[in-house]
Amino acid sequence: MPELSRRRALTAAAALAATAGTASALAPQAAAAGHRPGSPAAFDEVYKGRRIQGRPATGSGHHHHGAGYAVFVDGVELHVMRNADGSWISVVSHYAPVPTPRAAARAAVDELQGAPLLPFPAN
């Protein structure tokens, strides 16, 4: 294995600096588009006859536990929360963590069994 020369060390440092500069330059563009780094992608689909939607939440004035993410079932907000381990739970399926907000919406539809989702009062 070749020895690490000063030239190779400086080349590697320059490459790391360029990569870090590109990542920090792209972060504001992603935030301006409404997508936070690490935030799940938006979705809009019909699942078992119910329309489920999810998207990064905008600042609506009340506190979101869903890490800045809003989920809706037939247009009614399904309150979701991200756990410390990265899993998601909802007010409907609170004891069954799932990997994504889409999975939380699907689990809520399954649990509702055709019943409408009622608005959850915000404190």
Rank of each mutant, 00 (worst) to 15 (best):
V76L: 04
S60C: 11
G68Q: 05
G66D: 02
F72L: 05
A84N: 07
N83S: 10
V80H: 07
G61Q: 00
W88S: 13
A67K: 00
D85H: 01
H79I: 06
A70V: 11
H79S: 11
W88I: 13
V71K: 07
R82H: 09
G68D: 12
M81T: 04
G75I: 07
H94V: 14
H65L: 09
A70E: 13
G61L: 00
G68K: 01
A84Q: 13
A70S: 13
G75W: 08
H94E: 07
G68I: 09
M81E: 14
A70R: 01
A70P: 05
H79A: 06
V80L: 12
V71H: 10
G86C: 02
W88F: 15
G75Y: 09
H62R: 10
V71I: 08
S87M: 11
A67V: 01
V91S: 09
Y69C: 08
A84L: 13
V92G: 00
M81A: 13
S60A: 15
G66A: 06
A84R: 11
S93H: 06
G75E: 12
G59K: 05
G61I: 00
I89C: 09
G59C: 11
S93Y: 05
S93A: 15
S87A: 11
A67F: 00
F72I: 02
A84W: 03
V71A: 14
G75T: 08
L78A: 06
D85S: 03
E77S: 10
H79N: 13
R82A: 03
I89T: 10
H63D: 02
G86R: 05
G61C: 02
H64E: 07
S87Q: 07
Y69G: 06
A67E: 09
H64K: 12
Y69M: 06
V76A: 04
H64S: 10
G59D: 05
I89Y: 03
H63N: 10
G61V: 00
H94S: 13
H64Y: 13
L78E: 10
V71E: 14
D74T: 04
G68M: 10
A70N: 09
D74A: 10
S87F: 03
G75P: 09
H62N: 07
W88G: 15
G66N: 03
A84K: 12
W88N: 09
G68H: 05
H94D: 07
G86D: 05
E77D: 12
V73K: 07
I89S: 08
